[in-house]
Design a binder for these strands. Sequence first.
DNA 1: CTGGTGATCAACT
DNA 2: GTTGATCACCAGC
Length: 199
Amino acid sequence: MLQNSARTSPKPGKQLKKAFFGRSVHEVAPDLIGATFLVDGVGGIIVEVEAYHHTEPAAHSYRGPTPRNSVMFGPPGFTYVYRSYGIHWCVNFVCEKAGSASAVLIRALEPTHGIPRMRRRRGLPDERSLCSGPGKLTEALGITHAHNGLPLDAAPIALYARTAKPDVVTGLRIGITKAVDLPWRYGLRDSKFLSRPFA
DNA sequence: CTGGTGATCAACT
DNA sequence: GTTGATCACCAGC
């Protein structure tokens, strides 16, 4: 049996509704660990996320609305997809309430659904590397700017609640240079599918 | 294992 | 002109 694996809860729970996201980003983020995230039936179990809020300078919404981040200022329960370093895509879930401009960055999945399709999109890397980073998982799931602003409770997206409470650890967010001291990274303890281990 | 670097674009100074 | 919520690849331990 797989140790350190979210597959100890193999069956996805009920589909998450918009109300799930209409709470503090610091409640939603840890609650997403163990949920199943699919796009067109392809994806896996969320094992790593980060919370961002417009009151702290690491957030894209910190300086107010722009064409890129406008979805963050809208109602919760929608995707915010942006281009990262000119090359990759990253996907967030908008939380709290309209104007709060808070979101959870999805950073890593444990692949469970459509693994052959993800391998083709990613150029056949090992399963451990399919979704172990924010840019990797969007490539594996086929997420692009075309998926910005989509509702999280309707096709092509599907989100299923976890059925058991996982062992969630926290740490410092990765790849930022502002507000580096905030421990708003959340992960499944000892998962092999993290973008990087927790300290 | 670690560290350096290029790719390439929206937002910012 | 510079900076980033990144990744793959390569060199050198």
